[in-house]
Design a protein around this nucleic acid. Structure first.
Ligand code: MN
Ligand code: MN
Ligand code: ZN
Ligand code: ZN
Lengths: 155, 155
DNA sequence: GGGTAGTTGCGAACCGTTGGCAACTACTGC
DNA sequence: GCAGTAGTTGCCAACGGTTCGCAACTACCC
């Protein structure tokens, strides 16, 4: 058997119909599920996305998830960044309007302040003529909680 | 046969002797070659480093290069960043005092201006209490030359 | 309701990286 | 100098994430 057993467009899909039609991609169950998963997860690795998809459509293969992420990326609907070593973390481009700070020690991920991001972008553009790809930017380092114990009087 | 045929410490090694002795690592040909390669290359992928090493010591295996980079990283002599998709780019920590701007279109890599970097670090620290790992930071985007044609009167 | 091009599931292939192991050697202490 | 020992290495198999090939299937247009 190929494809999923679940009918298309029941609950999911609806919000993607217009988008997919505009870029000329068919509304298939796997595709809609991947979009739903990304929307719900915010961002996730291929395996995370596949797992989320399989919960509602058990027949969707990992290969298909890979292919969907590739296709959707080519069409500008999805992008990726690197929040963990060794793998890409995918996200909807609509979610890629901010950069991330990733703690090496505890793995915490927080969004970079918009003002700082804007100034950084402006300066890089002015000095280097370089346009920063925000959604892809991940800044690794150590968060406040994991910093070597020091002025922790407030604790 | 194991090990290389080239004697240790002839030309290379000399500058690493003190460093390696201090951290308790033996001065082996593969190790010295990897350090020399990193020093000469600035930064490179495992395959680049291996290729450089093999030019002077043909017997050094790829596995050993991987192990050296791992060991030297654990001892704080080497670090890595990501200048290309899918692989780590290794460098001496002494070279990791700056971040990089990487152009998606032409692949150009330039060092980020120190002043911008310093301000960014300070702001991130102040607002998020987050300490940025500079050497690992790679900013992807599009360089001036690859930007969509616009005000190019000076051409 | 057909016809067709786009999609999919499956399984194999791929490829960068890691691991196991016996041989070998840099370093220590004599 | 020279043996003893722990650290290293080369070889090669294994591993795990990602990509491919292909025949079956189906969303979409008419
Ligand atoms: Mn986010
Ligand atoms: Mn550099
Ligand atoms: Zn942390
Ligand atoms: Zn460029």
């Amino acid at each position: 058997m190929v494809m999923s057993a679940q009918p298309v467009g029941s609950v999911a899909g609806r919000q993607w119909a217009e988008l997919l039609h505009a870029i000329g991609l068919r509304q298939t169950t796997p595709r809609l599920m991947v979009l739903d998963a990304l929307s719900a997860l915010g961002h996730g690795r291929v395996e995370d996305i596949h797992q989320a998809v399989v919960e509602r459509a058990p027949a969707v293969s990992l290969s298909t998830v890979y292919r969907q992420l590739e296709t959707l990326t080519e069409h500008g609907v999805v992008s990726h960044t690197h929040l963990l070593a060794g793998t890409k973390t995918y996200q909807l481009v609509s979610h890629a309007d901010h950069a991330h700070l990733v703690c090496r020690d505890c793995g915490a991920v927080v969004e970079l302040d918009g003002t700082i991001a804007a100034r950084f972008t402006a300066e890089v553009s002015g000095t280097h003529g370089f346009t920063v790809d925000f959604g892809h930017l991940s800044v690794f380092g150590r968060c406040a909680g994991c910093a070597p114990e020091r002025a922790q009087e407030a604790g």
